[in-house]
Computed example of a mutant assay.
Amino acid sequence: MNARAATVSASGRSHQSEGTLAIHRTLPEEVPVALVFNGTTQAVMMASPADLADFALGFALTEGIVTDPSQVDDFEIVEHAQGIEARFLLEDGRAKALSARRRFMAGPVGCGLCGIDSLDQALRRVPRVTSDLRLKVAEVARATDALRRHQRLHDMTRATHAAGFMTSGRSVFMAREDVGRHNALDKLIGALAHEGLDASQGAAVMTSRLSIELVQKCALAGIPVLVAVSAPTGAAVRLAQEAGITLAAFARSGGFDIYSHPHRITDEAPHVA
């Protein structure tokens, strides 16, 4: 388990209308995390140094490097002075598939597509999500407020994103935080896989805008509903329509907008044939 702290203390001076004063604040830490598969670095991402086993597995799943945790023969976190390595040993079949599909990335925290080597990869096709999940309007309307109660790192720093998971009849019960919204979602997806939870029976709840990369990750993880406090991009809406994902945005103050596949969020009784 990684021992690096997720926060750091910093001193400074605050200039306000009423004057200047000395301050001491808690800030989020970010470190380079190398995702290494069978001895070869696949990506280096700037991330919060917490829940890195979840992050690494979530990244491996949402990048299609593995399709199931059982395909990982061994895993370890190795710390270096300059950063952290998350080392995977893959079973032979996945190692050969990865060798045939090399993708090198250097990802800043705000970017989920940096370093890809073709435009086709940016708009990659994803599997269509199927699920019988149904959520009530009130559950979705309260989702981001429920997520807020899981944001311990944000409470300390005011500078991190969170991704949470909720199911029908159960508010957000699992969440992960990171300086990057893509990293937070990867951590959540990895945590679901580690716990053996069925991603198709719940919704991901985000503190960020809804970009196409988040929709791609949910599609690959099989998550049928994506809820966020902010706006979606046009590309995210188009991909959600194609991928069978319900997109709910501007989820705050007890309301939200639905942009795709609204049948999963309703207060209507199901029709019985």
Rank of each mutant, 00 (worst) to 15 (best):
L192M: 13
T40Y: 06
H263C: 06
L197M: 10
H261C: 10
G190C: 05
L27C: 05
V66L: 11
A236P: 00
Q42V: 13
S118N: 12
P69E: 10
T160A: 11
A50W: 02
I77L: 14
V137F: 06
D92L: 05
S211N: 09
V140E: 05
A243N: 08
G202W: 02
S208Q: 09
P270F: 08
I116Y: 09
R142Q: 15
D54I: 03
H161D: 04
V205K: 03
R149S: 14
L220G: 01
S70I: 09
E268S: 14
L226W: 02
T160I: 06
S11C: 01
A163V: 05
L192K: 08
R176N: 12
L119Q: 13
D92F: 00
S200F: 01
M1N: 14
H263S: 15
G196L: 07
S70W: 07
G39F: 07
L210W: 01
S253G: 05
S131T: 04
M45D: 07
H263Q: 15
S208M: 09
Q216R: 08
E139C: 11
L147W: 00
E29P: 00
G39M: 08
R102V: 11
A159N: 11
M156E: 10
A138N: 10
T62P: 05
L119H: 13
E18S: 14
S11G: 07
M166A: 14
G83D: 10
A106N: 12
P49H: 12
A240T: 02
L98F: 05
E213S: 13
G202T: 01
P127C: 14
R101E: 10
P127E: 02
D178K: 04
A249K: 04
M105F: 06
K217R: 15
E29I: 00
V227M: 09
G244Q: 02
L214K: 08
A248L: 10
L185R: 02
A5G: 14
I265Y: 06
V137N: 11
R176S: 07
P127G: 02
L210K: 01
R158N: 11
V66W: 03
A219M: 06
T130S: 14
A248C: 15
Q151N: 14
F165H: 07
H182E: 07
M1V: 05
T26D: 02
R25T: 09
A163F: 00
V129G: 07
S211C: 08
Y259F: 15
T67C: 05
E242H: 04
I77H: 09
R158H: 13
S17G: 06
A141I: 10
R209E: 09
E195W: 08
F59P: 00
A231T: 15
L57V: 13
I23M: 07
H80L: 03
A22I: 09
D54G: 10
G39T: 09
V72Y: 04
D74R: 10
R4H: 13
L89T: 14
T40S: 08
D186N: 13
F59V: 02
E139F: 12
A251I: 12
L123A: 13
G115V: 08
A236F: 03
R128W: 00
R25F: 00
R128A: 09
T41Q: 11
Q241D: 13
Q151I: 02
D74G: 09
A60S: 09
L21D: 01
L210P: 00
P127H: 07
N38A: 13
F256Q: 05
A269C: 03
V179Q: 00
I65D: 06
L57C: 11
